[in-house]
Design a binder for these strands. Structure first.
Lengths: 226, 226
DNA sequence: TTCATAGTTCGCTTATAATCGAACTATGAA
DNA sequence: TTCATAGTTCGATTATAAGCGAACTATGAA
């Protein structure tokens, strides 16, 4: 057996679907908790914990404790580069995740993406805000305009804590299919929490589905229908 | 489940030790037959065949038939880049193949690396030829000097077919540990075949060990001891 | 204190895939 | 033709690891 770097170890770490989903989720640059990553990969917390310790032992991710949370993120730029290279090649070779399947139409309509809204509703939010120049598209950032700031405030969301946070306000969630990016960032999070808080929607436990009720549907439409 | 490129598929293809060894072997740029790759990964031909069809289906390698042989090689530069990136990261993270183990000391002494000699003897050949300026080290190539050409001819090896081939004459076999590169290229192949042909050495079937006999040891030493 | 949330560890079950023996096809050599 | 080599396909075995329930620790909140 030849000497040399063991690419099999890296490969098998990335090669497990659950771990690949976690890593892909972390590629947004956000640090995520074990629970969030478990949800992302549709596995239980125990299983996720096992995967995360393997990923950490392999040097692909690192964690920092914060209170009773453990935030995981991509270990360093080298790992990020590798994952990006793999995504590029996978796309070029036509290897796409097909599990998206219409298993649950509710998932397509509105679902949680870590801490913000994805699915048709998520896309519609971003489209609508773009159309009204509430956000301007930069290179790979989104900028909230003054009009946008007013819009958010008018919804009853306090911009103070958001502006002071290190997290970007607006961010397109890089859906690798590109044509369907949705609103992430602290504004995205605030929106989702606002929906919960107003009693417009609730999260179905054990699933990523976000369930809007009658009133919620109406409010959402009045806010984001063009 | 998010849409996006399926890096898990690529990962799992590379993540199997047998396949990783095959891919690593192909990273020299040489096209290898299924049998050679099976030997490289220490698996049977049946198993190798199964792996190779998976790798091909995944777009990582391609084959071209030539008579009753099938030569496999890395599919394209993108795949090569990915593997190189992975090797670099694996090395940086300290993931080394440790199976090298002293399972068989004969393997360390002299073994086949596809079509040329590796192990201590392989290293010694290259060192010796460098010391006598038979080869000059270029950027990542090796150049055979006129003196080197004479040396090869004097051994009784016909340089004609080698010079006309598209294959590089001399090539360091990129052992990823870097400090132990040995002589590959068509000269490397010619040397090994010369040893066989002169009855100085024989290959132990079912293994990569090259067994030098008494006479072979002596001849080798007189040729390559400084 | 008690309760709740976040996460780990242990042990078990299960599913996947790597492996190889055996039988097959295909190409070339004698 | 026959024989040998190269490779594939099929079927069965086996080993590994993913997954989860249950019980545990740890941090924070009330």
């Amino acid at each position: 057996m030849k000497e040399g770097p063991d690419i099999a170890l890296l490969g098998s770490l990335i090669g497990d679907p659950a771990r690949a989903n976690m890593l892909t989720a972390l590629m947004t640059g956000m640090a995520l908790t074990a629970s969030e990553l478990a949800a992302e990969a549709s596995i239980t917390l125990q299983t996720a914990s096992s995967h995360l310790s393997k990923l950490e032992a392999g040097g692909l991710i690192r964690q920092r404790k914060q209170g009773r949370h453990r935030y995981f993120s991509i270990a360093d730029d080298d790992v990020g580069n590798l994952l990006e290279t793999m995504m590029g090649l996978a796309q070029k070779k036509g290897h796409m995740r097909t599990r998206t399947g219409p298993k649950d139409p509710a998932l397509r309509k509105a679902r949680v993406c870590y801490n913000h809204l994805a699915g048709e509703y998520g896309v519609q939010m971003l489209d609508s805000m773009k159309a009204r120049n509430f956000v301007l598209e930069g290179k790979d950032e989104l900028e909230l305009t003054d009009a946008g700031r007013d819009f958010v405030t008018a919804m009853g969301i306090d911009m103070e804590p958001l502006s002071n946070s290190r997290r970007p306000l607006c961010k397109p969630c890089l859906d690798w299919s590109a044509r369907r990016s949705h609103l992430a960032g602290s504004i995205g999070t605030a929106f989702l929490e606002h929906f919960y808080h107003q009693g417009w929607a609730r999260r179905i436990s054990g699933s990523r589905v976000v369930d809007f009720n009658r009133k919620g549907e109406a409010e959402f439409k009045s806010l984001f229908n063009t």
